[in-house]
Nucleic acid binder design. Structure first.
Lengths: 248, 248
DNA sequence: ACCTGAACACCGTTCAAGT
DNA sequence: ACCTGAACACCGTTCAAGT
């Protein structure tokens, strides 16, 4: 996988490239790898709000400013985390382009499920593209080309594919307010339970089924209440719809 | 439009309900409406990073803490802004359910285009649901029911619809790093310009077309580089795919 | 009722100083 | 080379005090 990192020119500049450690088993000190690893551990065990450079330093047992020797900025840490989380989601080549795409979408979602709190960072920050995986892009383009999309269509369909891959999962694992989580859950449950069946009859009829399992009407995110059937329905619709487009 | 606000129970508690002003033209003072309006103006003219309670206070010419008399928390401001931005996106009823859905998606995107910096807040924070628009939900469910979706399918398709509505646009208008925007644009342009055409031939062939117009390979967001064709392709594919599902 | 003003517990990041 | 430590310019929010 060729990942072109823009970290140096983009997310901040490192003062010097730290010297690589010798192979012998000295005290490890701090390394970039250790920083990223600790960052992932921190974001996994707490949440996105608690993910700060200062808490990261606490986790590592160093002063906050020590981190900046190994990593140029907070955005760089985020970039590195993302490319680590999303590494290896590109499926094996396959004849059926629809199946290949669905597998890509599922692999993305599975990768996020392992580190759900990272999800909000990807869909929402253009910086998340700072480490561009050209191999992934080429694989998608190859699949779409084989399927029959070309020229201007290739761009439009590519954008549709990326939106499909990222969009559902980003929302599924969106941030839950930390402090007021309990109050909020209670309030939302109350809303769902007391839907007026003359004003909103269809919703009232389906309220039990929708509670905490529908976007907008849930009080937990995908880490606790996964939206499997919605996801499968969504990606199936997209690939079916793209097939319809091909036949026109 | 019945918007159920969870602000009181969820996003913080107000100390007292401020008394409504009399009709005569006294000095206006501060009101909740003025706070939300200034918040939108601030987020529109600057960006999401600059949107802080303290900057909001500066904009209003008051001390930061004065805001808290009218609004319980930052999350409440966000909630109010979102429901203001997304007010009135539900289309008129219509026979063709596919057209109705597409119109909903387009209305959502148009609403976001007026206040692009609000976009990241919606897709990514569960708090964004704090003001639940039950009328919108019922309208979607009515349309889907008329189309023929029922029972468990209704939930899955509803989730697919919300993901479609929010997902593409959230990414299209994702946050651009403020400080290093120029450096980053240059670096990304360089990546796109120097794609190796033996390793990534299809991308190399399409690089000119993809530069700043494809997800992952752009350095500006939808406010400067809108992805119209991708969006239309995406929503058309979704509704076509849902129609395929109906016919099975 | 509504605002000021001080204060608390946080941020990311820079830079000089140590070893 | 790599870390400490102080410092800067920020945050959201609470609470007492003013008017």
């Amino acid at each position: 996988m060729e990942v072109v990192s823009l970290s140096h020119s983009v997310v901040g500049r490192q003062r010097r490239t730290p010297k690589k450690r010798k192979g012998n088993s000295e005290t490890p000190g701090l390394t970039k790898e250790a920083v990223i690893e600790a960052a992932l551990k921190l974001i996994d065990t707490t949440d996105l709000e608690s993910f700060s450079m200062r808490n990261l330093a606490k986790e590592l047992g160093v002063y906050p400013t020590a981190i900046y020797w190994h990593v140029p900025s907070r955005n760089a840490v985020i970039t590195e985390m993302i490319s680590r989380v999303l590494g290896g989601i590109v499926p094996e080549e396959q004849d059926d382009w629809k199946e290949w795409l669905k597998q890509l979408f599922r692999n993305y979602r599975q990768a996020i499920r392992v580190h759900p709190n990272v999800a909000p960072l990807i869909g929402v920050q253009l910086v998340s593209n700072a480490s561009v995986d050209l191999d992934m892009i080429e694989s998608i383009l190859r699949t779409l080309s084989k399927a029959g999309f070309a020229d201007d269509d290739l761009l439009a369909v590519f954008n549709a594919v990326i939106a499909t891959m990222v969009g559902f999962t980003t929302q599924e694992f969106s941030m839950v307010p930390k402090e007021e989580a309990d109050d909020w859950a209670a309030a939302m449950q109350n809303v769902v339970a007391s839907v007026d069946d003359t004003r909103h009859p269809i919703l009232a009829r389906n309220a039990g089924n929708f509670a905490n399992k529908a976007f907008i009407l849930r009080w937990q995110n995908g880490a606790f209440s996964p939206l499997d059937s919605g996801f499968e329905t969504f990606i199936q619709a997209v690939v079916d719809g793209l097939e319809v487009r091909l036949s026109q």
